[in-house]
Design a protein around this nucleic acid. Structure first.
Lengths: 120, 120
DNA sequence: GAAACTAGTTTCCAATTGGTAACTAATGCA
DNA sequence: TGCATTAGTTACCAATTGGAAACTAGTTTC
């Protein structure tokens, strides 16, 4: 009983840390979760739809974040040959595996607000 | 069928966005999830324990992030009157409500790695 | 008396993030 | 002809983030 748990920084611990780092890197930045959340709710959406739907985002940011998400294969980008050309973004099947995370994050945020107000 | 879903930016949508923003603000920065994850696994831990356990973190960051977490009531800080004074950090009951989020994030990261390696 | 361990704090610096605004380029409409 | 809409891009700038290293300060051990 002198040294319980000497080797705490074990394999599973390192794997977990790496896993968390990976996920947070994929979701890095202020907007990716919002974009994914919006696309998960809205299905196929055009650039301008997203720009209008996501409050406060600038075209530059939306463009950059969508590129990141596309690179990570979480969303697809499809150019549609309409009169003024439009581009459709959609969450991939792979991207949909993010849904539990986003839901948990949204749930916690609601819980957090309720706690704040309940305590006032 | 001319304008389905005109009012997309509805109440529930705004609430969700606010909720996500709130959560991500509480978890902001590179380290908070790791600190919480480590404390959830390790129970009571001292400053130096955390510093050694969390690979790459500097004392300044650990200190600052712990203060943030304490302010948000996710962890408690207890000074223990040992020979060289020690400080114990522990996740609160409230902080434990973060566990589902952290688990989902860790799970996804593992899934992500597997997918990468499976595709090589 | 010097070194080491506790838990930090402080300073200084570099990189990243993100915002505004203007610009491109193609097409349609009045 | 000129304005609007589509989907961006570019340039510039400010704030935030985070890292390294040195420092404080009290106690204990050699």
């Amino acid at each position: 009983m002198i040294k319980r748990k000497a080797v705490k920084k074990s394999l599973e611990c390192k794997v977990r840390i790496t896993a968390i780092t990976d996920t947070m890197q994929v979701l890095s930045g202020k907007w990716k979760i919002h974009i994914l959340g919006t696309l998960l709710q809205g299905g196929k959406m055009r650039f301008m739809d997203l720009l209008r739907e996501i409050d406060g985002i600038a075209a530059k940011m939306l463009s950059k974040e969508l590129q990141d998400l596309e690179m990570n294969q979480l969303v697809t980008r499809t150019v549609v040959d309409t009169k003024p050309i439009t581009v459709e973004y959609e969450v991939t099947e792979y991207g949909k595996t993010m849904e539990p995370i986003i839901d948990e994050i949204a749930n916690w945020g609601v819980f957090y607000r309720n706690r704040l107000h309940g305590k006032d």
